[in-house]
Simulated assay, not measured.
Amino acid sequence: MTFSIVARQGTAFGVAVASKFLSVGALVPAAEAGVGAVATQAWANVAYRPQGMAVLRSGVGAAGTVAALLAADEGRAHRQVGVVGPAGDGVTYTGAECLPWAGGVAGDGYAIQGNILTGPEVVRDMQAAWLASARLPFAERLVAALAAGDAAGGDARGRQSAALYAVEPGRGVGGWGDTAYDLRVDDHPEPVAELHRLLAVHEVLHGASDPAQLLPLEGELASEVRDLLGALGYDSLERWAGVENLEGRLAAGRIDPVVLDHLRTAASRAAG
């Protein structure tokens, strides 16, 4: 009832998943910076998440971690799991009792799996999208692979939820912790598309400014910004940015084009 990709890129680990199931992000993904990532699905054994992290943390690779999880689980025939560790190939497992179509593919740094799918083209197209998108940022790459599976047919029963969970050292919001992305669409007619929209919002609010793109806040641009802020009822860029959760993109004497676009859009909407 679910399709997912578990992957590694540089020092980042993550999982993207979609399903005809409420709140799939609450059950399937697990990841830990410097350790690896796990997706548990089909008749999901949520204990695989802490257990898998513990085995990976001990230095065992992805194949050994999958073997350890299955060995201790009498319901292994109903399980599906994907694991990546700090190095080498990812590993995917599909139990013999998983409902068709069910299966997966894996390679260097990734594992893709799904069950109750429209067919093998779902995981095949996800793999192709992952391999073709190496230049994309990690989160975008994960969602692109998920979108390819969705476009290929995805869950045979329909659509309901999707999630993205990714970790990287020091990449938490505001530099706090390692959780770079924890985005969930719990109940939506087009959950993968909505997940992509949320990712774009996340990048606006929490992405890092490119110093080379910052614009000098002077002359006509400074006047425009003052007028836009005034139309919105603010006397400073800092006050408005704090309300909009954009304070992380502020720079003294300059303005991020992302902030400027957001300000222009807000003022245009307020004007009707």
Rank of each mutant, 00 (worst) to 15 (best):
V17C: 10
A251I: 01
G107N: 10
V173Y: 02
G149S: 10
A156S: 14
Y93Q: 13
W130A: 11
V55S: 10
L22N: 02
V81R: 07
A102Y: 05
L205V: 10
A16N: 01
V66W: 00
V55P: 12
E244A: 15
D155Q: 07
A267Y: 02
A71Y: 01
A212F: 01
D256P: 14
A271K: 12
L131K: 04
G154Y: 00
S58Y: 13
G114D: 10
E74A: 15
G52S: 11
L69S: 02
L195K: 01
R8E: 09
A144W: 00
G149R: 04
D227C: 00
G175E: 09
V167E: 06
G172T: 12
S209L: 13
E74R: 13
R49W: 00
H202S: 14
T179F: 00
D155V: 10
A39S: 12
G88H: 04
L183A: 06
N115I: 11
R76T: 07
V258I: 15
N115G: 09
A212D: 12
P189S: 04
L221N: 06
S4L: 05
V173I: 15
F138I: 10
G230E: 12
A208Q: 14
L199M: 09
A193P: 04
G59E: 09
P216A: 14
L228S: 06
A77R: 12
P216D: 15
P189R: 04
V105Y: 09
P100S: 09
A193K: 07
G172W: 06
G85D: 13
A37M: 02
G172R: 09
A72N: 05
A16R: 01
M53V: 13
A152H: 05
A252K: 08
A96C: 03
P120C: 09
R239L: 14
V15N: 03
A132V: 07
R124A: 15
G109F: 04
A270L: 11
